[in-house]
């Protein structure tokens, strides 16, 4: 799980061009969106696309996304449970 958390942090940094942000700057138990990273709801939808491309997980309802993106740890759990 910790390695998946690390992997997801890397994807978030690369996917959103977060210059100067390191994985250590992202807290695994804090909300991914609406916090210090200045990521908003459109970034959340970009993350939906990343999950589909990299893990084959298709999210078609916003409520599912909101739950999955509660924190990087929650996201890792979601990915582990749904990846194909």
């Amino acid at each position: 799980m910790e390695s998946l958390i690390e992997e997801l942090k890397q994807k978030i940094i690369a996917g959103f061009n977060l210059e100067g942000v390191t994985p250590a700057d992202i807290q695994a138990d804090e909300p991914i969106f609406g916090t210090g990273l200045e990521l908003d709801s459109i970034d959340a939808l970009e993350l939906v696309a990343i999950l589909e491309q990299d893990y084959g997980i298709v999210i078609s309802e916003r409520a599912v996304a909101d739950q999955a993106f509660a924190s990087v740890r929650a996201l890792a759990g979601f990915v582990a449970a749904h990846r194909v």
Binding site: I42, D43, L45, E46, V48, A49, E52, Q53
Partner: peptide
């Protein structure tokens, strides 16, 4: 296959 929401907005 790969949605790009930010480009759409």
């Amino acid at each position: 296959r790969v949605p790009r929401p930010a480009l759409f907005t």
